[in-house]
Nucleic acid binder design. Sequence first.
DNA 1: GCCGATTTGTGAAATAATTTTCAATAATAA
DNA 2: TTATTATTGAAAATTATTTCACAAATCGGC
Lengths: 212, 212
Amino acid sequence: MAETKIPKATAKRLPIYYRYLNILHDSDKNRVSSTELSEAVKVDSATIRRDFSYFGALGKRGYGYDVDSLLKFFKKILNQDKLTNAALIGVGNLGNALLNFNFHQNSNVRISAAFDVRPDLANTVQSGVPIYPMAELRKQLEDQQIKIVILTVPESVAQNVTDDAVAGGVQGILNFTPLRISVPSNVRVQNVDLTNELQTLIYFLDHYNEED
Amino acid sequence: MAETKIPKATAKRLPIYYRYLNILHDSDKNRVSSTELSEAVKVDSATIRRDFSYFGALGKRGYGYDVDSLLKFFKKILNQDKLTNAALIGVGNLGNALLNFNFHQNSNVRISAAFDVRPDLANTVQSGVPIYPMAELRKQLEDQQIKIVILTVPESVAQNVTDDAVAGGVQGILNFTPLRISVPSNVRVQNVDLTNELQTLIYFLDHYNEED
DNA sequence: GCCGATTTGTGAAATAATTTTCAATAATAA
DNA sequence: TTATTATTGAAAATTATTTCACAAATCGGC
Ligand SMILES: NC(=O)c1ccc[n+]([C@@H]2O[C@H](COP(=O)([O-])OP(=O)(O)OC[C@H]3O[C@@H](n4cnc5c(N)ncnc54)[C@H](O)[C@@H]3O)[C@@H](O)[C@H]2O)c1
Ligand SMILES: NC(=O)c1ccc[n+]([C@@H]2O[C@H](COP(=O)([O-])OP(=O)(O)OC[C@H]3O[C@@H](n4cnc5c(N)ncnc54)[C@H](O)[C@@H]3O)[C@@H](O)[C@H]2O)c1
């Protein structure tokens, strides 16, 4: 909505850059070149320069990029200068692992509420996050102004739960179920399909050799 | 290695198609059109037809695709007609969730060995999978002919562990750590970076409206 | 202040992926 | 049988992304 629509491929790399800039910052490096970055994040240096250039001239020729100002810039762009709350639905196997992890390091996203149908989980606290019964989903999403949901329920209920979350005003869903959920066009879904990833890896192993 | 190199984008979609074909098969449907598939997997129907056509003329004009033969075809292509063993390294938070899940449904990948440094975990069995001490990594990978590793160790040790796994003959790594690990060019890495996914989602929410 | 070494930013070219379009064919209804 | 409708497969057009390659800018040393 701000800078004239960056390519999707670029957008997906921004968090990778952001993360490495944080590492550089923490180790008191204050200057970095696209070649050096390339090495660390495994993205071609020309691609990095191109990516950065969508945001203007962020570097200095013959010098490179200033870590601190680049970091500050990306922090803003990625909304990491404010805390973003997310909800997690489905406190099972995977849900628990994510709750416990809670995206702390170098990330300003936090799971602030979790939901599950299991009565024994309702109104408990797991890894510091309160678990609510599903009946409270809508209310909590609205009250806490939560716009992002992490979906770790069984596939069979994924669409129903999604519909509820969308009704509660959610705008983005990180979907760990294998179901391709249906949402209105103003809601964005990011699928994380681990079985797929493994199968793709196997396919590549069998059908492509070396590099690509 | 077999059919003349399919586009990467296509390869990544194959498991999605495969999965839905299984569902159709299980519900005794024996015919499907690209439009119907498109609806279910959320991929444009023209893209689906194009994807399929890389493998030859799999459908019939005016009719669609025969579910069973398409399924059989993809099963072969994706190597799902044989069992593939994988190893998991790092039986922590996330590792345990993956162990417990173990990719059963509609997938012929199985974690057959897990590894961890923690002495109390060594030589136990978690979710039916034996856990070995790291000292045995190389031997087990070689003995069990494991070519795929799921990496769920802390970032700080990720590169070292990777190097060991590679020395053990691993060819593919599903990397859950945020580190972009370095591997020889004959080893393929598939990164699953959950913090990234969340940050990308946030970026899209803030900077793109509606659809794309 | 000049010089050589760096390193960016970006046009242009190359490559990759998606989408449009439509002729060909199959199924089905009349 | 023939007309109508559905649907693929493939060529072409379009759009997206990556990569090349180099002029322009900056730095650091002298
Ligand atoms: N665990 C993994 O490693 C893994 C890997 C890949 C994909 N997945 C996918 O992630 C999802 C969760 O997997 P899991 O292993 O954590 O399953 P799980 O069964 O351990 O957890 C699911 C949780 O959702 C809760 N739940 C069920 N119905 C609900 C509803 N209607 N509303 C709210 N909560 C509800 C259950 O009580 C349970 O706590 C599944 O779709 C699975 O396919 C998991
Ligand atoms: N848990 C999550 O939800 C989550 C989300 C995103 C990313 N990750 C990433 O996944 C990785 C694992 O996360 P986690 O939460 O499961 O961490 P964890 O600390 O719970 O588990 C790590 C496991 O690795 C083992 N380990 C440590 N050093 C080892 C070594 N040298 N060799 C073998 N095993 C070793 C530890 O004993 C532990 O069991 C981390 O890199 C983390 O950044 C986790």
